[in-house]
Design a protein around this nucleic acid. Structure first.
Length: 525
RNA sequence: GCGGUUGUAGCUCAGCUGGUCAGAGCGUCGGAUUGUGGCUCCGAAGGUCGGUGGUUCGAACCCACCCAACCGUACCA
């Protein structure tokens, strides 16, 4: 039997967890400055609460992990944090303040094929406002998302929050005779095609909207079968309509970073105003579309007034989002930098979070309409990106002070020393912990104990054998200093003789001696 | 689901036209060193060559099927 982690799942080591903890704290801090409070819901929900958003309710295991309870009810692991929040709000509607601002972080699960940077268990960090019908709430979400990116160390220009509106898309689709329930499937195909813009380019999207597309591997993807005229009508959504060449940018005062969006060498920047104008002309007389454009216009005014320019938040009509339940504004956080990973491959991270307005989700459980908007950050994915960007705050943790064991029958003494050190070194609960431990392996070979301490990156070891005990002394050994000294010693006998970094002190001076060494090391960094 | 690539020791990999081809480095463990880390040196353990059939005097190598992983693509609420 081989030990192996299930496909699509990962083990996370100490370093990763420390880094994740730091990230979560940073995000939490931003959310709380906006007035959001935490809430936690379980990882399981009744499958019907995740409900009609399953692709096929006859196959409850498709896409989600599901089990049948002994009362024959199906339960599923949540696949996002939005549907569970909707259930929670509906269940506690009377007692919650409205609008209800809440945030929560947690693992979500998807039963699908894993890929590079894609797992079947991953963490999301969501924030939502329930009971706020106006798009000013959506604008606030976008601004908070931008703030979060920067709090995490992603500089302006390295990310953008793109905002669109489902009503605009739906309005245009209505205008080209794709409205109504009977065309829901085709509308979804169209949305997904546009969603692939960054992957397949404008040409590819055109193919996907028409007959279909043959990719490099020879696989054929069936298209939406739109006529050329229909495609022509919606083409502004996946062209360069949302962009303006860098040199023509009106916001020259801002440090905008231009990007290539097609085969030419032209660098383009986000153009919110242009996007809105194009959207207005494309939706024509569609009532829904016009309403959507007006909403985008309002959002634009809010973010501009608050000082969030197109280098942070941009209106861009190519943002779609795959989720079906969005009813209004949708947003997406995209990282704009390429990075080279451990394998030397250039990786484009793209989207690290997204969200939007889902006015129908809570009201599924209620007799009254409940507007809601929110967004989600893909923590695991973002962490990988930050790591490659070199922005991951890896908190340096001290290794343990190791009390070594010379005489097996004096374990009690060693434990007492460790306790004394532990208490003395950790008196201030606000400082990071200084671990102290007694060596718990086989103490027979003393060399192994030091080797262990070395591998744990121990700053100091404490040594007290029979000789020291008789004299009322104890040895403290600075491993870091010893390591530096080892560089100039090549002979092992000499190295052992040198007792590098070691000093003998009175038993009563033990705590102070260890403190001195730790202080010296932290000074020298 | 579709297409491609790859499966040899814990890890990374070498292994020629099918004929000493069961190998290296790293890691692990032991020793040189029973009270001192690093360096160095010596030694050991560890593999049904992904699996099952087949071709052959002979298969890690050729063929078929299966399995798995990886890459791309599709799906991704």
């Amino acid at each position: 039997m081989t030990a192996r982690v299930p496909r699509g799942f990962v083990d996370r080591d100490a370093e990763t967890l420390y880094a994740q903890e730091a990230m979560l704290a940073t995000i939490r801090r931003v959310y709380e400055t906006y007035g959001f409070e935490p809430v936690e819901t379980p990882v399981f929900e009744y499958t019907d609460a995740l409900g009609k958003f399953l692709p096929d309710s006859d196959r409850p295991n498709e896409g989600v992990f599901s089990i049948e309870d002994d009362d024959e009810q199906w339960m599923s692991l949540r696949y996002d944090l939005t549907a569970p929040l909707a259930r929670y709000v509906a269940e506690n509607f009377e007692s919650l303040p409205k609008p209800y601002r809440s945030y929560r972080a947690g693992y979500v699960f998807r039963n699908e094929k894993p890929g590079p940077g894609r797992f079947r268990q991953f963490m999301q960090f969501d924030a939502d406002i329930v009971g706020a019908p106006n798009v000013s709430a959506d604008a606030e979400m976008a601004m908070m998302m931008a703030d979060t990116m920067e709090a995490l160390g992603i500089q302006r220009g390295q990310y953008v929050i793109r905002v669109n509106n489902r009503k605009v898309l739906d309005g245009v689709l209505e205008a080209i005779d794709l409205g109504g329930e009977e065309n829901a499937g085709r509308r979804l195909t169209v949305l997904r095609a546009i969603d692939k813009l960054d992957k397949v380019g404008a040409e590819g999207v055109w193919s996907l909207l028409g007959k279909g597309r043959l990719d490099e591997s020879g696989d054929f993807t069936k298209g939406a079968e739109l006529t050329d005229a229909q495609i022509e009508r919606i083409s502004p959504f996946f062209g360069r309509a949302g962009y303006v060449p860098l040199e023509q940018s009106s916001s020259a005062v801002r440090p905008l970073v231009g990007r290539r969006i097609d085969d030419s060498d032209t660098l383009w920047v986000e153009d919110s105003r242009g996007s809105i104008e194009v959207a207005r002309s494309v939706v024509g007389s569609s009532e829904l579309g016009v309403a959507g454009v007006d909403e985008l216009d309002n959002i634009y005014r809010f973010i501009e007034a608050a000082g969030y320019g197109p280098d942070r938040i941009a209106i861009n009509t190519s943002v779609v989002r795959g989720l079906e339940y969005y009813t209004g504004p949708v947003f997406e956080a995209e990282l704009l930098f390429d990075v080279t990973n451990e394998k030397g491959e250039v990786v484009r991270f793209g989207s690290v979070g997204g969200g939007g307005r889902y006015d129908g989700l809570v009201s599924r459980f209620m007799s009254q309409p409940v507007p809601a908007t929110g967004f989600s950050i893909g923590v695991s994915r973002l962490m990988t990106a930050l790591k490659n960007l070199g922005r991951l705050k890896t908190e340096k943790r001290s290794g343990p002070v190791v009390v070594t064991v010379m005489d097996r029958d004096r374990m009690a003494d060693y434990q007492a020393m460790a306790t004394k050190l532990r208490d003395a070194l950790n008196a201030d609960p606000l400082l990071p912990p200084v671990p102290v431990e007694v060596f718990q392996g086989n103490p027979k070979q003393f060399g192994k104990q030091l080797q262990y301490a070395d591998r744990r990156d121990a700053p100091v070891v404490v040594i007290q054998g029979g000789d020291e005990k008789a004299a009322g002394k104890v040895q403290v050994k600075d491993l870091k200093l010893g390591k530096e000294m080892s560089a100039t010693i090549t002979d092992n006998a000499e190295w052992r003789e040198a007792r590098a970094g070691q000093e003998t002190v009175d038993e009563s001076d033990l705590v102070d001696a260890v403190k001195r060494i730790l202080a010296r090391q932290s000074r020298e960094g």
